[in-house]
């Protein structure tokens, strides 16, 4: 197990630092950053690692930041990314300027026309957003949702394909109870004009970390597909929302089932609660084992 004690280059240290930052559980990157800083004891290496790792972490965890003014929250996601620190909030047509390492929004500016979808697309996007906000507020006590157009946003009318993405991000951080968790859903919806169909692709991810006198983490991933028919903006929105609701409810039920299976099947394959004999091990009476062992050895029927 002995490690070679060769001095690491700054580049290697930076890569290690990034690994720690990117593996931080939901909501814990700042704590990891603080410990990492003191382990590294080299501010320039840390700063460089942080400037590279934080944007990746923020986007993959789809963190939610409050915008200044009365614009509400913005999600930091790759779908709304205009450049490294600018993130579109399609709901308010505002662009949030973000400080990744501090995880705050420093400034807000109105989005330009080029950054927004055409009126034709916006009608679909906006209708879906309204349906999704309704669903998210019912299903997620702390959920935030955004709907982006990621393909064909400039289509002026029927006859062209486009793609919307619904993002749901719900995090619950209670470090004082040693518990953090996050739920992330990403739903890609392809509007296929030629076959008048909507193809849905969902990616659901749940993580939880409980660390009071220990370290236990849950990590789940699930992908699913579905389709529905291309209708008016409002009807499409209702259809999509009900497909999403259906799949996410099913998924939650399957998570519950995984938990229910733990004690009697899954966990049992690692260690049983009681021995196969269903009584505690007879430590007081182990001489019988030695005896039977001797006998089986003599008879040549040992394991």
């Amino acid at each position: 197990m002995a490690e070679e004690e060769t001095e690491l280059s700054d580049e290697q240290k930076k890569e290690i630092a990034k690994w720690f930052l990117l593996n931080a559980p939901a909501g814990e990157i700042q704590y990891v950053a603080k410990d990492l800083k003191s382990v590294l004891n080299a501010d320039d290496v840390y700063n460089e690692a942080a400037s590279e790792a934080f944007p990746v972490y923020n986007k993959s965890h789809m963190i939610c930041l409050g915008m200044s003014g009365h614009f509400g929250d913005v999600l930091v996601t790759s779908y709304g990314e205009l450049n490294e620190n600018e993130y579109l909030d399609p709901k308010t047509a505002q662009v949030a300027i973000v400080d990744h390492v501090k995880q705050v929004c420093t400034e807000v500016r109105p989005a330009t026309d080029e950054e927004l979808p055409s009126p034709y697309i916006e009608e679909y996007r906006c209708a879906l957003e309204a349906e999704m906000l309704k669903y998210v507020s019912e299903a997620y006590p702390k959920g935030v949702c955004s709907v982006y157009c990621i393909n064909g946003k400039d289509a002026e009318g029927p006859g062209s394909d486009f793609e919307l993405v619904v993002v749901i991000s719900a995090a619950r951080l209670s470090p004082q109870n040693f518990c953090n968790g996050s739920w992330r859903s990403i739903w890609n919806i392809e509007f296929k004009d030629d076959i008048q169909s909507l193809e849905l692709k969902g990616k659901l991810q749940v993580g939880a970390h409980y660390f009071e006198e220990g370290n236990v983490q849950l990590d789940t991933k699930h992908e699913c597909r579905d389709s529905t028919i291309f209708q008016s903006p409002d009807d499409s929105a209702i259809a999509i929302a009900s497909v999403i609701r259906h799949h996410e409810t099913e998924y939650l039920a399957s998570l519950e089932e995984s938990y229910l299976n733990l004690p009697d099947t899954t966990f049992k394959d690692l260690r049983r609660k009681l021995p196969v004999t269903r009584t505690l091990f007879p430590w007081h009476n182990t001489s019988q084992f030695s005896l039977t062992r001797e006998i089986s050895k003599e008879l040549g029927i040992g394991k």
């Binding site: 953090n180 996050s182 849950l218």
Partner: peptide
Amino acid sequence: RNSLDQVYFGKTREMVCTLRP
């Protein structure tokens, strides 16, 4: 084994149900 099963796994399950009841 018991605290893993009851407490630790239980807490992560509780978290899931808090996120999406």
